[in-house]
Design a protein around this nucleic acid. Structure first.
Lengths: 149, 149
DNA sequence: GGCAATCGTATTGTGCGCAATTGAATTAGG
DNA sequence: CCTAATTCAATTGCGCACAATACGATTGCC
C-alpha cells in the first residue's frame, strides 16, 4: 500500500491550530456565559470599545478579519440585546455606524477579568504566550500577503 | 474614562489564534474545492486514512477534538459523496464504524500535495512551523488538562 | 447632467461547532 | 436475573463563517 507521509495526522500543523482555536473559543464561551455574550460577540465588543469613534461594519470586519455576512447577524443580536445601536451614516448612507450603548459600556468591567481567567491555569508560560503571539502574527501576515485565490 | 488595558484588541492572544485558524482553513477550502471536500471533511478523511481499521464516530472525534453533533452530519455527507460507508458494529450495536470506500481511497493521492501547496508561499520559515507546532501542542495539553467547566 | 463602475451592507444558502436531549445498547450491582 | 447507571450515536436548536448574490448609494468620467 502506497503511503502518504505528508498526510499523516501527526504531521499536520493545521489540525492543532484548528483544535486549539476551537478549544480556546470554547473556554471563552464558558467564561462569557454569565454576561450573555458569545465569543464572536465578545471580540466584536472589544473592537468597538477599542475605537474612539463609532466604527462602520467594514471597519469592525477589518480588525477581526470577518466579513459582513458574518458580522451583520452578530451586530443585530448585539443590538437586540441592547449593547449597541446601528445607525446609517448621514454623509455616506451606504455605511452603518455601530455605537456602543450605556448597557454596552457596563459590560466592559464585567468581562475585564475574562482573558486572565481563561489563560490562567492553562499552564502556558508567559514566554510561550509571547512566542505564540509572535508566530501567529507572522502567520497572519503571510495569509494577508499571499494570494487568496 | 476608565481604561481596561487587558481588553485592548492588540493585547489579545485569542484573536490572532482565532483569525489564523480561520485564515488557514479558508486556504485549505480553496485548495480542496477541486476534489469536493470541505476542510472538516478533509481532516476527517485524514483521520480515517491514518487508522489501520475502521474507526468509530467517537474515535474520529477523539483524534479531531470534535463531538458526534458535529461529526454525524459530516460523515453523512462523506457517505452520500461515496467516500465512506457507515456500518453498525455487530458486537456493540451502539457503535458505528466508518469504512473508507474505493472512491475514498482514490481521493488520497489527489490531496497529497494540498498541505505543501497551502503552506508554501505563506512565508513561514520551517523553524517557525516547528516552533508553532510545539506551542500549539503545549496549548492543547493545557486545554485538555484544565477543567472544562 | 448622464451613466457605468465601484463601494458598503444586507440577504441567501450551505456547512460546520457545540450544548442539551433522546434513545437504544451495554455494563454493573445486588 | 433485574434494575440502575453508563456509554455511544443521533437529533435538535442556535449561532457563527463564508461564498455568492443583490441592491441602493456614491464616485468617475465624459
Amino acid at each position: 500500500m502506497v503511503d502518504f507521509p505528508q498526510l499523516e495526522l501527526d504531521a499536520q500543523l493545521c489540525l492543532p491550530l484548528y483544535a486549539a482555536a476551537r478549544g480556546v473559543t470554547r473556554r471563552y464561551a464558558e467564561a462569557l456565559g454569565g454576561v450573555g455574550l458569545t465569543y464572536p460577540q465578545y471580540v466584536t465588543m472589544l473592537a468597538l470599545w477599542d475605537a474612539d469613534a463609532p466604527l462602520t461594519v467594514g471597519e469592525v470586519g477589518e480588525r477581526l478579519h470577518l466579513d459582513s455576512g458574518t458580522l451583520t447577524p452578530v451586530l443585530k443580536r448585539l443590538e437586540s440585546a441592547g449593547f449597541v445601536v446601528r445607525r446609517r451614516d448621514a454623509v455616506d448612507e451606504r455605511r452603518v455606524r455601530i455605537e456602543v450603548t450605556e448597557r454596552g459600556e457596563e459590560l466592559r468591567p464585567k468581562v475585564a477579568d475574562v482573558p486572565e481567567r481563561v489563560w490562567h491555569g492553562m499552564g502556558l508560560a508567559p514566554a510561550d504566550v509571547v512566542q505564540l503571539r509572535t508566530l501567529l502574527d507572522r502567520l497572519l501576515l503571510g495569509l494577508d500577503a499571499s494570494p487568496s485565490a
